[in-house]
């Protein structure tokens, strides 16, 4: 039986903080350009299509489908070594963008491309002093997906 992955804390900056703080509230937060309606990921302060700065954040449905995946059997890094095999995947969100993530909650051998999945969040322990230096004052979590 594979061990649980001990997720490392993300580093956030002004442009990505809303995403990670959203994860802390168990919300998958995406961006939309108010000028050209483009939904973009990863988060940016500027719309990559029209260079507008008029960006709004919204909470995505958290539903998507597996675009591709790989069952990872070997990773030398301590955080992942004992968690093999785990499923690394790209998930196409209903709103358009694609996220790199993990698919959990089923046998790795049962994961299929096109499989409908839903987001879940793994809370990370808070450390107020250090978290601020990583750009995330509020709590955060790592988004991953399970079969819906």
């Amino acid at each position: 039986m594979a061990a649980e992955i001990s997720y490392s804390k993300p580093v956030a900056d002004w442009e990505t903080r809303a995403f990670w703080e959203g994860c802390g509230r168990h919300e998958l937060v995406l961006q939309r350009c108010r000028d050209c309606q483009t939904v973009q990921f990863r988060p940016r302060a500027i719309c990559a299509k029209c260079l507008s700065s008029d960006i709004e954040h919204f909470v995505a449905s958290g539903r998507g489908t597996v675009y591709t995946f790989t069952v990872t059997h070997q990773n030398h890094l301590p955080a992942f070594r004992d968690a093999c095999p785990y499923v690394l995947a790209y998930v196409d969100l209903e709103e358009g963008p694609q996220l790199m993530t993990h698919v959990v909650g089923c046998d790795p051998q049962d994961v299929r491309i096109g499989m409908p999945v839903e987001v879940e969040f793994v809370d990370l322990e808070r450390d107020p002093a250090k978290d601020a230096s990583r750009g995330i004052a509020a709590g955060t979590a790592i988004p991953r997906f399970h079969p819906s």
């Binding site: 997720y7 490392s8 690394l88």
Partner: peptide
């Protein structure tokens, strides 16, 4: 940080 948590 959008890649590294996932052990790619």
């Amino acid at each position: 940080s959008f890649v590294s948590p996932y052990g790619m």
